[in-house]
Structures are given as C-alpha cells and as structure tokens.
C-alpha cells in the first residue's frame, strides 16, 4: 500500500530558559491511504508539535517530512500554504470557522483560494452539504 504521509527520523527541540528541550526524538511514522491514526498522550508529551509538523505548519529541527512523496522541508515559504490548501484538511480544537461567512461561503472560500472552477465548486458544495444533511442551511 502507498504511504501518503511519511515522517522520517523527526527531531524537534525548543529553546526553553537557556536549555535545549527535545520534544520529538528521532520519530518515524508512515501513514497509508485510508489509514486512520490517533495520537494519544499526556499533556506536554509533544502531540501538538507532532501535529504541527505533520500538518506542514512547523518545520522540524531535523528529519524529513514527505507528503505524497513531496518534502515539506527546505521549501520556499510561499509553497507551504499551497500545500496545506491542496493536501491537508484541518479540524481545530475549537471549531474555528470564519464568523462572518455562511455555510456555503465557508466552503466556497477554500475553493476560491484553490482556484477551483466556480461551477464545479458549487456542485461539490451542494454534494457535501447534502451528504452532511445540511441542505436546509
């Protein structure tokens, strides 16, 4: 099976009050297509750091992150938002929606950012809303 997300030998350290604190120490992970992974651990164990790196929000101190075979490290700053936009979906701790957009507009925004064809985007939005039983909104 194909691995869509590969974390290879990731290390991440923070500077904390003059001492180096290693949060992730040579972590490797392979996630395949269709696989569902849950990360559990006590507070402060490095879950968020791990997710930030896997979500292309943070660059690890060392090691390689491959998303669909593409490395996120050493990329131009401008390329990362595009990668997040097209390859990754986020659901944050508190449901962070843009407060002034309607349901349809929330979805439309992402389509617009990704330069999707307008008719195609409309179609997809209707499909998604129907699937979730939000047609009436």
């Amino acid at each position: 099976m194909r691995h869509r997300l590969i974390l290879d030998n990731i290390t991440h350290t923070y500077e904390d009050g003059g001492t180096q604190r290693t949060v992730l120490d040579h972590l490797s992970l392979h996630v395949s297509e269709g696989e569902f992974v849950a990360v559990m651990g006590p507070s402060g164990s490095g879950k968020s750091t791990f997710l930030s790196i896997a979500g292309a929000l943070l660059e690890p101190t060392s090691g390689a992150v491959l998303l669909d075979g593409e490395s996120i490290t050493g990329k131009e700053k401008k390329a990362l938002p595009d990668m997040r936009l097209n390859k990754i979906g986020f659901i944050f701790q508190s449901a962070n929606l843009i407060p002034y957009l309607k349901v349809e507009e929330q979805l439309m925004l992402v389509a617009k950012l990704g330069d999707m064809n307008k008719a195609k985007a409309k179609e997809r939005i209707r499909e998604l809303l129907h699937k979730l039983g939000l047609n009436h909104r």
Partner: peptide
C-alpha cells in the same frame, strides 16, 4: 486559521 488552511499572506 486562514493561514493554516492554506491562505497566502
């Protein structure tokens, strides 16, 4: 959030 979901600055 907008930046996280891939909006360019």
């Amino acid at each position: 959030i907008l930046k996280a979901i891939g909006t360019r600055t």
